[in-house]
Design a protein around this nucleic acid. Structure first.
Lengths: 215, 215
DNA sequence: CGCCAAACGGACCGATCGGTCACCTTAGGT
DNA sequence: ACCTAAGGTGACCGATCGGTCCGTTTGGCG
């Protein structure tokens, strides 16, 4: 039973500020994860902290609004791909679109990976996404392109797994996830064996030297 | 330049409390991640909060001590497997051991996945682990068991990826990671195709209904 | 036993966070 | 131009955290 503030206000300054807030929050959450403070988001949007809570009843509410937007977007992409000619390629494209969202958005990873951060609506959106993945997978399976025991749930779960595989490389090799998507896809498909499309990373990148525990 | 308190104190109560603290911290970190408070760890160990900081100069120091222990353990397991008869099986067993650590320890996942939580020693331990994985992989590759362009870095990165793939299923199906380990291993190996050893999950588990953002 | 350095413990500090509220500004209809 | 309700704002609150400090306890040696 999440308390949601009225969808879109009427006054012009209110709609403008709501837009600014959503943009700022999306950017900030994506870059630094769910731990960014409301104050920082407000400052980034150029409004006062109180304004945030006028538009969103809580931080979780703001976060959910943004997560829902991306989940719906991915679901739409998946639905569109159901009409594509090549079922296997469609499934692969869907997975690529999914991993790209994970890669670009740190908060997205955290929310998907931690159920305690998920509102009821987010959970429902994830399940809808699973359903679309199920259809895409079934279509590819009927064509014999994927192993018979691979499900849409597998596919959705793999999105997060692929992102986390490539995560340590993101700073130095932002496209490395393509390598692991290919590897996972090769694990999913039956007999297609081709060389990986991305060169192997030479080393684990040494990240920033600070070792703080706090956020 | 991490400030580390003297390894092991002399007085009997001090050694006992240090042991209690390490055990309590390992358990608590494993179950609830790096965000557990020092106060809670102290209470769980049956000592005062000040005692924690007598033994470890900071929370990061305590965390690093525990992470180092597990990293060293895994490295030893990998080194031992270098002597095993079947190189491919040895690599697979190493990966299984690695994923099991990830699965059992939430803080371990968080530290490996977030460089800002890694002390210099932890980073070094991860690199040593990478080296061992490299040797294991090279051995399997020489035997023709893995694709020629798969590296030890790939293997280490996949450990985290596999864990995160199975993470949402952990509550209902604690052994599900074996399915994704097999899938990843099939992606790594050349032509070995066998049916997955774990049945596909029927649904995404619906987790606890709370949606708090705070720790 | 008696002593004292080492260890213990918890009140305390400063910082930070999400969220509230009472006061002020302003959009926009008349 | 004016009025009013909706919107904006930042000081403020309570909770929590990592870390400190100093008065108290205790292990173990002479």
């Amino acid at each position: 039973m999440s308390r949601t503030t009225p969808a879109v206000p009427s006054r012009s300054d209110a709609v403008r500020n709501r837009r600014l807030l959503l943009d700022a929050a999306a950017r900030t959450f994506a870059e630094r994860g769910v731990e960014v403070s409301i104050g920082e988001i407000a400052q980034c949007a150029g409004v006062g902290k109180g304004t945030v809570f006028r538009h969103f009843s809580s931080k979780a509410d703001l976060l959910a609004a943004i997560m829902l937007g991306m989940l719906d977007e991915l679901e739409s992409a998946g639905t569109a791909l159901l009409e594509a000619g090549d079922p296997a390629l469609a499934l692969r494209d869907f997975m690529a679109a999914g991993v790209e969202i994970f890669v670009r958005d740190r908060a997205f990873c955290e929310v998907v990976g931690r159920p305690s951060l998920q509102s009821e609506q987010v959970r429902e959106a994830i399940h809808r996404l699973r359903d679309v993945a199920e259809e895409l997978t079934a279509r590819a399976r009927r064509q014999g392109a994927v192993r018979p025991d691979v499900t849409g749930t597998d596919v959705v779960l793999l999105l997060s797994g692929i992102q986390h595989t490539a995560a340590p490389l993101l700073v130095t090799e932002p496209e490395a996830w393509r390598r692991y998507l290919e590897l996972a896809f090769d694990g999913i498909t039956a007999d297609t064996r081709r060389s990986l499309p991305y060169p192997p990373p030479r080393r684990l990148p040494l990240a920033s030297p600070d070792a703080q525990v706090d956020g």
